[in-house]
Design a protein around this nucleic acid. Structure first.
Lengths: 179, 179
DNA sequence: ATGGGTGCAAAGTATTTGCACAAGC
DNA sequence: GCTTGTGCAAATACTTTGCACCCAT
């Protein structure tokens, strides 16, 4: 959509009211170095595009986004589909992205410098609404304790119909209902 | 594994302490008739195998299970892969099974005559442990209300390491750790 | 008998992989 | 310069579909 802040995440990474020390780029570099992997143009481009906006996306959307901005500004190199997948996996491993599986396809969202949260999923327009719940954390810990289970994370998706879709119950997926 | 109670679900469907009026077979028949669909050998066989034991399974496991019992007892007809997929979808539509997506593949579990519950997922051995929480239902309703969202369901998966895997932290997936 | 169901094989879709060339350290 | 990364195309994994024959109603 816009390519404005493509290089805005250089030093400090602002996020709402919170500001964390290192940008996603820096964080990813750390991860790559710790694994003996290299910091390439493609990886940089991908991290830029992924953390440019905070929203939910899948591999195809990211690829579409990439080709769009590559037409506009001459970013130098394009990134191939396999590389997008490879890098998304690395970003998940690095703890920068969280992967969610919504009806078959993988959906990604920021996991670094972004508070733990869960989702309301509208089954009509596929929109995801985020929410946080402190009680949920307590609940999951309580349950885990009962079963001698060591928790590393969780995923809660409440499905239903969002408020706009509830009104216009005759229309299906609309281009206006962006994720 | 065993083909013992293959036809035990004829009349009353026992489930722990609870007993519901109609068996999965009957319930599925109702659904099929209401949709003008037919009750075939294949569908019967599949429902039998699915509701024989209460566990989590995917399409491949069900198919494997089928071919095994078809070798032992001469059930008459075998069920093809496409039919398994078609029938699983129908069982989900009919509300007899619940579909869950665990890292790409679809996992199914009983939904009929079985209380709503959620899962602890061991990322080491892939075991699923069920649990119930009344608070969770309240929580999800409270959150939904805040967002004008009409809830139809939810899915919570708490991931981590189960107690046995926590002990033997050196071993990976073992044939002993059945789902 | 007749319209839906099944099996087969083939098509999709989403993602991964082998290999030759290119590039980071 | 040596190794890791990338792009391409092909492979893979899972699931769905088109079509000719079959069976429940």
């Amino acid at each position: 959509m816009d390519t404005a802040s493509a290089d805005s995440a250089q030093s400090a990474y602002a996020l709402g009211a919170v500001t964390v020390a290192s940008s996603p780029q820096e964080r990813f570099s750390e991860y790559l170095q710790s694994k003996g992997k290299r910091i390439t143009q493609q990886r940089r481009i991908l991290v830029d595009h992924v953390f440019e906006r905070h929203d939910h996306f899948d591999a195809d959307e990211l690829i579409a986004n990439l080709s769009r901005s590559q037409q506009e500004c001459e970013e130098g190199r394009k990134v191939s589909r396999p590389t997008v997948y490879r890098t998304l996996n690395e970003l998940v491993e690095a703890g920068l992205l969280r992967r969610m599986t919504l009806s078959g396809r993988s959906v990604y969202e920021h996991d670094y410098g972004y508070p733990q949260h869960d989702h309301l999923h509208c089954t009509k327009c596929d929109k995801l609404i985020e929410f946080q719940s402190e009680e949920l954390k307590q609940l999951r810990q309580a349950v885990a304790n009962e079963h001698g289970f060591r928790v590393t994370g969780h995923r809660l998706i409440v499905s239903g119909i969002c408020e706009p879709c509830g009104r216009n119950r005759h229309r299906g997926k609309s281009p206006l209902d962006l994720i």
